[in-house]
């Protein structure tokens, strides 16, 4: 079976972002960009399915600027077989991404699509679920374990109360949580090999999808800053302050 892994190019998780003073957005000039961490986990899971002989082909898809091609190369170096870059030069909303992915899914007929549970830039946590609805498929979100068996997949999900396991008919959508696996680093030979793997270049119009955002961003601001507090010297002083100064115990 084919596995599709949508991957997003985002600000690296180690970067402390800055809001532009004119409130028009976040300053992304000269900022380190990487694959969304949850998507690395998705790529890893797909490759492991291939190594187990469950998956036959892993296709990495990214919707974004030309530079997102580097993100696809990273996935190819990890072990994905080929890539699709849908070039869009501005922010794309989850529903738009889902619509494009739905068209790709119809063309490629994967049995499994593994997305990240959330992109760490917009923190939306929507795309996988939207894609599942558009395709009429089942979804196993926030996955910490994925077991494919015959024409179903069992997904263990990290939920508010603990863990929940659901059985989904294939084809299905999975979104990854942090503890699903630990993504590998690409080896140098694999990075070299990845350069020869094919990447299809597409546009949103190839899929009949209008990529224009529908939510209007009015402004982007700094969150309220906490002011640094004081250091206490002893536990006794701490308890006294919590009781008599802050009044929280």
């Amino acid at each position: 079976m084919k596995v599709l892994v949508p991957i997003k190019r985002v600000v690296d998780y180690n970067v402390k972002i800055r809001v532009k003073p004119d409130q028009t957005g976040v300053d992304l000039a000269n900022v380190k960009m990487s694959m969304n961490p949850f998507d690395e986990i998705g790529v890893e899971e797909a490759i492991r399915l291939k190594e187990k002989g469950v998956a036959t082909e892993v296709i990495a898809v990214s919707i974004g600027p030309q530079e997102a091609q580097e993100t696809i190369r990273t996935a190819l170096a990890m072990g994905a077989d080929r890539g699709i870059l849908v070039k869009v030069d501005h922010e794309v909303e989850p529903l738009t991404v889902a619509k494009i992915l739905a068209r790709i899914a119809k063309a490629e007929s994967p049995q499994l699509i593994i997305l990240g549970k959330q992109a760490i830039d917009d923190d939306s946590n929507q795309t996988g679920q939207m894609l599942a609805q558009l395709l009429g498929w089942a979804q196993g979100t926030f996955a910490s374990k994925v077991v494919v068996e015959g024409d179903t997949v069992d997904v263990t999900r990290e939920v508010d109360g603990g863990l929940q396991t659901v059985r989904l008919k294939l084809p299905a959508i999975v979104t990854t949580d942090l503890r699903l696996n630990e993504p590998r680093y690409a080896s140098l030979p694999n990075i070299m090999k990845a350069k020869k793997k094919p990447i299809d270049a597409k546009a949103a119009s190839d899929y009949g999808v209008d990529p224009a955002p529908r939510l209007k961003v009015l402004k982007t601001t700094e969150p309220p800053k906490r002011k640094g507090g004081v250091k206490v010297k002893t536990v006794q002083e701490l308890v006294d302050k919590l009781k008599n100064e802050a009044g929280v115990i």
Partner: peptide, 23 residues
């Protein structure tokens, strides 16, 4: 925005063809 709400609400938004506003 519990794990339940996060799970089903985007499906509702997609079915109604509107963007979801999260959290």
């Amino acid at each position: 925005a519990s794990t339940n709400g996060k799970n089903f609400m985007p499906r509702v938004a997609a079915a109604l063809d509107v963007p979801q506003i999260s959290e």
